[in-house]
Structure formats: C-alpha cells, structure tokens
C-alpha cells in the first residue's frame, strides 16, 4: 500500500464518516461543519486524481462560500437546537431504509461492470490544471459558459423578487 492508496482510504473513511455525521447531527450547525469536512475530503480526492482546479474551486465555492451562506442562514434563524420533533422516527427509519436499499441495489447492479479491472494508476494528463481547463472552457465550452450566466441572472432576479419588501 503506497502513500496515495493510504491517502485514498483515509479520505474515503473520512468522507463517509463525516457524511454520516452530517446526516445524523441534531444540531444544524454541526451538520454544516461535518459537511464542510466532507467537502474537504472530496477535495483531497480531487488532488489525488490531479484535478487541481476543481479541488481549489470546490474548497472556495462549496466550503467557503456556500457553506458560509448556510451557516449565515442558520444563525439568522437562530435555531441552534434542532426543532425536529421526536416522533419522526418512523420517517427516519423509512428514509434510512430507502437510502440503504438504494445503495444496496446500486452496488449489486454495478458490482460487475466492465470497468472492474480498470485502475486509475496510469499516465497523468494535464486536463485538471487551471490553464488547460481554462482554455477548454473558453473555447469549446464558451457557449454553455455564457449561458450559465443566465442562471445567475435568474438567481439574482429571484433574490430580488423574494427578498424585496412589498
């Protein structure tokens, strides 16, 4: 087991553990923090796979911006203690069951894929680097890139509509 393998298993364990903690935490703030940990571990995976640009963006956008926004909202609402009533256990059980069976089915279905033997050890390209990815983004993918601005415009208008006082 070399370093990258050790790192892989560590990050994997960390991400799954944090994800479970995020889901089960009763306090929303804790959930946010656990989620940030998941994002960090995923960024670690990105780095392992030489996707440096995405690793950085993931940290800045998700862990940085988005999760802060979440925290901000939670603070705003001042709901530290979870307001969820206790008697939601049935739903929890059902939810866990559904998620578990989904995992079970997916894993069972995908156990024998054509990708089984393929390993990610191999010659590393440079597509994960900022320069390379950037040039692709602004040449081949410029149309979707521009169009995604519409999304932000919508989001902006949405914030205006929803946030504006009548």
């Amino acid at each position: 087991m070399n370093t990258s393998q050790m790192l892989f298993w560590f990050l994997t364990a960390l991400s799954i553990l944090s994800a479970l903690m995020m889901v089960t935490s009763r306090n929303p703030v804790h959930s946010v923090l656990w989620l940030i940990l998941v994002f960090f571990s995923i960024s670690g995976h990105y780095i392992l796979m030489n996707a440096q640009f995405l690793a950085v963006v993931n940290m800045i956008v998700y862990a940085g911006a988005i999760m802060v926004l979440f925290l901000f909202v939670i603070m705003l609402m001042n709901t530290k203690a979870d307001a969820e009533p206790r008697h939601a256990n049935r739903m929890r059980l059902a939810g866990t069951l559904a998620g578990g069976s989904l995992l079970l089915v997916l894993v069972a279905a995908l156990r024998e894929t054509e990708l089984r033997g393929i390993s990610l050890e191999g010659p590393e390209g440079d597509i994960g680097l900022v320069a390379r990815l950037g040039s692709i983004l602004f040449t081949e993918y410029v149309v979707p890139f521009e169009l995604s601005s519409v999304l932000f415009l919508s989001a902006m208008v949405g914030a205006v509509i929803i946030g504006r006082k009548n």
Binding site: P144, L147, V150, S154, G158, I161, I162, N166
Partner: peptide, 30 residues
C-alpha cells in the same frame, strides 16, 4: 436549449435554466 441539446451537459444546463426561474415564480406570492 433543451429543445436543441445534443449533449447531456447542455440538457442539464438547460433544465436548470428552466427550473430555477420557476422555483422563483412559484414563490412570487410571498
């Protein structure tokens, strides 16, 4: 976009561009 997509990326983008404004419109009666 979704009328003319040839790529799943475009489909995804198109559907989001359609959906997000709709979320807002449905919330517009605050």
């Amino acid at each position: 976009i979704i009328a003319g997509f040839r790529s799943l990326l475009m489909l995804f983008l198109g559907i989001e561009i359609v959906s997000i404004p709709l979320y807002i419109l449905s919330a517009s009666d605050k």
